[in-house]
Amino acid sequence: MGQQGFAPDRLVRFCEVVERDVESGLYHGGAFRIARGGRTVLDVAIGYGDAERTVPLRTDSVFSVFSVTKAFVNVLVLRAVEQGLFGLTTKMVDLLPEFAGAPRDRATVLHFLTHTTGMPGVWEPKPGVPWDRLDETVAAVCELVHGTSEPGTRCDYAPMANHALLAAALVRTDPQGRSIAEILRQDLFEPLGMSDTNLGVPSAVKHRHIVPDMRGVIPIRVLSHENNDDFGLFTAEHNESVWAGASSTSADLFRFAEMLRGGGTVDDIRILSPRTVRLARQVWTEDLPNELYKAVALRAGYTPPPAYMGLGFNVRGPRIVNHQLGTLTTPETFGNYGAGSMVFWIDPALDITFVGMTAGLLPQARNIERFERLADIVVGAAL
Rank of each mutant, 00 (worst) to 15 (best):
T303G: 09
A295D: 13
H146W: 08
V283G: 00
Y293W: 13
P8Q: 00
Y337E: 14
P8M: 01
R373D: 12
K294P: 09
A280E: 00
T89G: 15
S67G: 02
L199V: 05
I46C: 11
V138W: 03
G38E: 09
A246W: 01
E143F: 07
L134F: 04
Y337F: 15
I368T: 13
K70F: 01
G360D: 07
R278T: 12
E332C: 08
L192E: 07
H28Q: 14
L184S: 04
V205F: 03
L188S: 05
L42Y: 07
E16V: 09
I352S: 06
P305N: 05
F334V: 01
S241F: 05
V68L: 12
N314C: 13
V145M: 03
T116V: 03
N322P: 14
T333L: 02
D287W: 08
M357T: 06
D252S: 04
L253V: 11
A35C: 06
R299V: 13
I210A: 08
E369M: 13
D132R: 07
G2W: 00
V343D: 10
Q4P: 05
L26C: 11
D376R: 07
W284I: 01
P191E: 08
G245R: 01
R133N: 14
V18M: 03
V109E: 04
T235F: 04
P56N: 05
E190N: 14
A51E: 14
D50Q: 09
L272V: 00
D268E: 15
T40G: 10
M160P: 10
A169K: 02
P125T: 06
Y27A: 10
L288D: 06
F234W: 15
L199N: 02
